[in-house]
Design a protein around this nucleic acid. Structure first.
Lengths: 192, 192
DNA sequence: GGGCAAAATAGAACACGTTTCACTTCTAGT
DNA sequence: ACTAGAAGTGAAACGTGTTCTATTTTGCCC
């Protein structure tokens, strides 16, 4: 990502953080990033793509924070709780930004399908690492020997978290519900 | 809902069915429903509200089809499968419409929060009925004696289905994945 | 340091959701 | 029937995502 693209994404993040999705007006983004509107569209095909790039940037930061070391905690449940707690807190520190990013994730825009899939895969991988008590970055080293049951459980947890996240973003419930949902699910799916 | 409102929603459904969310242009809706644009906005606050009204109409039809009789099937798993299968097939019969409706469900628009919550509650209630082998419409008769564990399981299944539905709408996977996700989840959560 | 292709720019223009407004038609109560 | 207020209409206008174009600037090769 070149310099201008970085400025564009950072500006979009700043605007979303302050006032949410609708505040990311591309004319404002361009002006604030000291770039012409045409340049924005040379780098990004749409507003959604800018926000997905922002999501990628933010998730890299989160992974850097919590994905390096083996997940702490005495059992799978505790470790899964830890990962989702860190993820959720990390994102909800800036709720307006978080809502804007979820909105892009759930937009259904066919042009960002691959990147949405990558995000989901990233979360699933982190959850699998948590179940096993490994560091998420070890994922790359695995052979093909992933336990199918663990993958399924991780995927369910990822789906529950995502659905609950969308629900929070839409005002269905408080942020605390996110972890409640995850905890209830792990209680039924994982040994202590 | 008065006559004009009905025509508006029906027109929106027809347009979404043919060409998806973006094809529901409100000027076209108004023209096709033989109504002025101002009248559309007197009935509905936004495009999202029209589509949510369409979702309510469609889910009523689905409930009428599958919610009247006790859910068929020999065990909770089979019955849950039946309900989600019917729901999914019913919606995916018109994929463009289904995508448009999911998009509204996941839009995060704060003005439709209550109706999104109602939809989720409806699905959850149907799943609980399926677990118990009852008819969903019996729900109203229940006292307060809902089994907390069953409610939790139903809610998890609802979340998984919704997340998978959003994934399908965004091109992440085929429609068949929806039922696979549900079946894998019930295998882990419910006795046969 | 001149020339050229690629990139960037300013700004107009377009599409569509949404709002507004001036005017007309209904409808209910008398 | 008459009238006041509600509802509907048609058209214009605005905001913002997106596209387009003519012009300028930049980076690079000789």
């Amino acid at each position: 990502m070149d310099d201008r693209a970085k400025r564009i994404v950072e500006t979009a993040v700043a605007l979303a953080e302050r006032d949410g999705y609708q505040a990311v007006r591309l004319r404002d983004v361009a002006a604030s990033a000291q770039v012409a509107l045409g340049t924005v569209y040379k780098r990004f095909a749409s507003k959604e793509e800018i926000l997905i790039a922002a999501l990628e940037q933010e998730s890299e930061k989160l992974v850097a924070k919590i994905g390096r070391k083996p997940v702490p905690g005495d059992g799978p449940r505790e470790r899964v709780h830890f990962v989702f707690s860190a993820l959720t807190k990390g994102l909800l520190r800036r709720p307006n930004l978080a809502k804007a990013l979820v909105r892009s994730l759930a937009s259904g825009d066919p042009n960002i399908t691959e990147r949405v899939a990558s995000f989901h895969a990233l979360i699933t991988a982190m959850v699998m690492a948590a179940i096993r008590g490994e560091a998420a970055s070890e994922q790359a080293e695995w052979g093909g020997d992933v336990d199918e049951r663990e993958r399924t459980i991780a995927s369910i947890l990822q789906n529950v978290w995502f659905a609950s996240f969308v629900g929070w973003a839409g005002g269905l419930h408080e942020a605390s519900q996110l972890l409640l949902d995850i905890d209830k699910t792990t209680e039924l799916l994982l040994a202590d």
